[in-house]
């Protein structure tokens, strides 16, 4: 990408790169404006219970989004995350209900299931030589099939509250903020610095910019690709556990459409779908925006279908703005 050259030049002049870049700044402004408008126009938005609900509902999208950012930065995509989350949810929910698995092993089980699903995606993408969207479309079906077989035609009821510490209720909050969201923040911080300052993290960007050049530069393309998908799988495991939350019910349609929301969050956050550019910070903000819109439409009493319309429009605006900036960068 020709646009990379001026970027490198400016970075050399200013060794401490800016933490917040154009798109992220714009997103913060949009979010702040939305929150301001909503707190003025409704008296329910700026209540601790509503904000806590919002953050909890956004947490799974944000957590998976962190992994998805890495995948998209490598120039790939993973549309199987919704089905993967369903597999994790049914396996873990049945384990904690039927064999009374305590928190730590259940968590490990969820992460392990997610990791396996992620590694399958990664291996198929790295060694299959097929476009990732096709691979993961295929595994989307396969994982959904697996989940439905495990459900045995029944939703899982009476799931105990093993994970209430990550759930949406009062017991899952610290300082009024859901623990799931704290978790997302910590993971995002770790991933943000990893992708920014670690060599292996930078390799993902190199891969996304030009996989052939990356290979010639000595980057182990295949293992880095698998790592990105495996990590996403791990986060899918975690998100599945957050979705089980305080227990109760796990429905057969769990996780359907989750992948589109995650991808929307990542893209709205300024990560280029073509690979090579993006950050998890933007993804967090994108997820918040998606969550805020959903919450706002419920609070304002608008038709819930408008949520989807707004998400679509936001994607177009975010990518459109990015395209314009990219063109300007190239013209400079």
């Amino acid at each position: 990408m020709a646009a990379a050259n001026p970027g490198i030049a400016t970075r050399r002049r200013r060794p401490v790169a800016r933490a917040v870049e154009g798109q992220e700044l714009a997103l913060i402004i949009v979010l702040a404006a939305l929150w301001l408008i909503l707190s003025i126009s409704t008296d329910t938005f700026l209540t601790s219970s509503n904000l806590s609900n919002l953050l909890y509902s956004v947490a799974p999208i944000a957590i998976i989004g962190i992994g998805m950012t890495a995948v998209i930065v490598t120039g790939g995509i993973d549309v199987s995350v919704g089905s993967g989350a369903a597999v994790v949810m049914v396996v873990v929910a049945k384990a904690i209900r039927d064999s009374g698995l305590p928190l730590a092993p259940a968590l490990a089980l969820g992460l392990a299931v997610g990791l396996v699903l992620g590694v399958i995606n990664g291996v198929l993408v790295a060694y299959g030589g097929i476009h990732p969207i096709i691979v993961t479309f295929g595994t989307l079906n396969l994982y959904r099939f697996l989940a439905l077989r495990l459900f045995e035609n029944k939703q899982v009821t009476g799931v105990p509250d093993t994970f209430s510490v990550l759930g949406g209720g009062k017991s899952g909050e610290t300082l009024g903020v859901p623990n799931a969201w704290w978790l997302a923040l910590v993971l995002a911080a770790v991933m943000w610095s990893y992708m920014r300052y670690w060599a292996t993290g930078r390799h993902w960007y190199a891969l996304g910019n030009d996989a052939a050049a990356a290979r010639l530069a000595g980057i182990r393309v295949k293992s880095r690709t698998i790592a990105a998908y495996a990590l996403t799988g791990l986060f899918v495991g975690l998100a599945g556990i957050v979705l089980i939350g305080s227990g109760g019910l796990v429905q057969q349609n769990a996780g359907t459409g989750l992948e589109l929301r995650v991808i929307a969050a990542v893209v709205i956050g300024g990560t280029s779908i073509l690979g090579g550019r993006g950050s998890v910070l933007g993804t967090l903000l994108g997820a918040l925006l998606v969550g805020t819109v959903t919450s706002a439409i419920t609070l304002l009493g608008w038709r819930s279908e408008l949520t989807e319309l707004f998400i679509g429009v936001f994607i177009l605006v975010a990518v459109g703005v990015d395209l314009v900036r990219e063109r300007r960068r190239r013209a400079r």
């Binding site: 589109l260 779908i273 679509g312 395209l323």
Partner: peptide, 13 residues
């Protein structure tokens, strides 16, 4: 626009 993104957005809309 990348086709994947454009048609994802219009899929929603």
């Amino acid at each position: 626009f990348p086709a994947l993104i454009a048609t994802l957005a219009t899929f929603y809309a």
